[in-house]
Design a protein around this nucleic acid. Structure first.
Length: 208
DNA sequence: TGCCAGGCCCTCTTTAGGGCCTT
């Protein structure tokens, strides 16, 4: 399975918003998509080496007690590096998760080859009439079944993956494609919103 | 009671400012 055929959808829960300000990951969740199907998953809490504040405990449901017995960030991220291999990567608001992935991998001197795409950027282009582009809102907007248990890493990664598969279905229907190549999805992240229809039209295969 | 940051994106723009999204 080449990198182009495997996509890992990931989500971090963290102590805050910025690794540059000392924030750390406290949970990683991810699912692997191959040929349009979720085929594997990864979830682990990790001990950031310090207490998380009450807001994060309430926001995520992850308590200091739970983290006390968790493996270290280094051990978890080493396992996660094996899980993602050379796969390409996707997250909802990928710039956030990429910063934490880069920071945690830098601590264990690991480099990864996969490239990121962002379901938030694509959603803003495809669902221009959505009330907003929060993950939970888009899951409801796309009629994806959900129990509402957001803000845990594995659940959010699963919901992001299902949102992504729904987006691909819509694009493929509009563009008469069987699948959306990764490089086309990358370009979609950067295409101006006003040019989306033209871009999707350009993806249509030539029919003899 | 969310605070921080940072990239994207829009507009009353580009020599800027502010909302959205992530925890």
């Amino acid at each position: 399975m080449s990198r182009a055929d495997s996509l890992v959808v990931l989500d971090f829960e963290t102590t805050g918003l910025s690794p540059d300000m000392g924030d750390r990951a406290i949970e990683i969740g991810a699912v692997k998509i191959e040929e349009g199907v979720i085929v594997d998953q990864f979830q682990a809490l990790m001990n950031p080496g310090r207490r998380v504040d009450p807001f994060i405990e309430r926001y995520t449901g992850i308590t200091n007690t739970m983290l006390t017995s968790a493996d270290s960030c280094a051990d978890v991220m080493a396992d996660f590096a094996e899980f993602i291999g050379d796969s390409n990567l996707l997250a909802h608001n990928a710039s956030f998760d990429k910063r934490f992935l880069d920071a945690e991998f830098q601590r264990i001197k690991h480099q990864y080859r996969g490239e990121f795409i962002c379901s938030l950027l694509v959603s803003r282009r495809i669902f221009q009439n959505a009330p907003n582009h929060k993950l939970g809102t888009l899951v409801g907007y796309c009629n994806i079944e959900s129990n509402g248990a957001f803000h845990r890493a594995l659940y959010d990664s699963e919901m992001t993956a299902k949102l992504w598969l729904a987006i691909i279905d819509i694009i493929c229907q509009r563009s008469n494609l069987e699948t959306l190549p990764f490089n086309a999805a990358q370009k979609l992240c950067k295409t101006p919103k006003k040019s989306i229809d033209k871009y999707l039209e350009s993806l249509k295969p030539i029919v003899a």
